[in-house]
Write a protein that binds this DNA or RNA. Structure first.
Lengths: 155, 155
DNA sequence: ATTAAATAGTTGCAATTGCAACAATAACAC
DNA sequence: GTGTTATTGTTGCAATTGCAACTATTTAAT
């Protein structure tokens, strides 16, 4: 029943945790150094720019960026207070709310991207060949089926 | 100068972030469901059990588990309050402090491991073959040079 | 030795997270 | 329809994090 877990696999688990933590620190730190908000903000803005009207149900944002609903509520609060998006009531489902990105929000997203991209390049992408990156995606997809197989970045 | 970052690589970055966040949630949730403390606690306990006297400088713990010093201070506070370890003054460097694991601490670590191991197996290890796990480690090492090449788990 | 810099750890405070409870609305069972 | 259950989003509260300032001690420089 309880078969002994393989040591190599444990090592790969630990490496994963560690590496990811390490990378995230680097990247967040680069953003901060550039006077920009955190990745969480970027994630919300990006999801909104990806979608036709720049409008998404909070709900939907939550599942896309893997965030608890209560945390999402308050993340959206902060972005709204900063004028990066606006809440809008949802007519089809009156419990719900939309977040709609503003011009200011779009412009921040555009401003953040190059910094973010450079950080990804420096701390991550430059360490891998193209083939390795593809291999990496393949492995991650096996581990987490929710990793998108096709969807691409815009910008 | 600013060469365009490759799209595949970006995709692999995003997959990494997402997968890791997802996995960590699963595992933390399993621990919680079993009435056990978080991974952060486990990490400290594990580092302490790995080492001869069950004694480490806070300092040292901090670099091993990638934690800010102020957060470490308070994490150690909590473990100490729970009787899992004790602080001890350091004679050779009087600024410093040791954390020394207690019997209770060791026993908690032993109690947590099986649950943690099962979680790793279910959410991660079972999705990879041995060869894939090895490939995975290889890639992670390229990305983060601080990933240990040799060190093994005890237990 | 004396001063200047670096390091170890702690503390205060503001920001963020996680959890449980809650209100409003929607979906379902009969 | 009516009552039950599920879902959406918000709120209060406690726990955790990140940051900057601070103390004490060590290291290095002259």
């Amino acid at each position: 029943m309880m078969k002994k877990i393989n040591e190599i696999k444990i090592k790969s688990w630990i490496s994963l945790i560690r590496t990811q933590q390490f990378l995230l620190e680097q990247v967040e730190s680069d953003l901060k150094r550039a006077g920009l908000p955190t990745l969480a903000w970027y994630d919300v803005l990006l999801e909104l720019t990806r979608v036709p009207d720049g409008r998404l149900r909070l709900n939907e944002i939550g599942t896309r960026i893997l965030l608890e609903k209560s945390n999402l509520t308050r993340l959206i609060d902060r972005l709204e207070k900063d004028g990066l998006l606006e809440r809008e009531v949802c007519d089809s489902d009156r419990r719900g709310a939309y977040a709609v990105i503003t011009t200011k929000g779009r412009s921040l997203q555009k401003r953040m991207w190059p910094i973010y991209a450079i950080a990804i390049e420096n701390h991550f992408a430059s360490k891998l060949t193209l083939e390795e990156a593809e291999m990496f995606i393949g492995l991650l997809q096996k581990i987490d089926k929710t990793v998108p197989k096709e969807r691409l970045m815009n910008l």
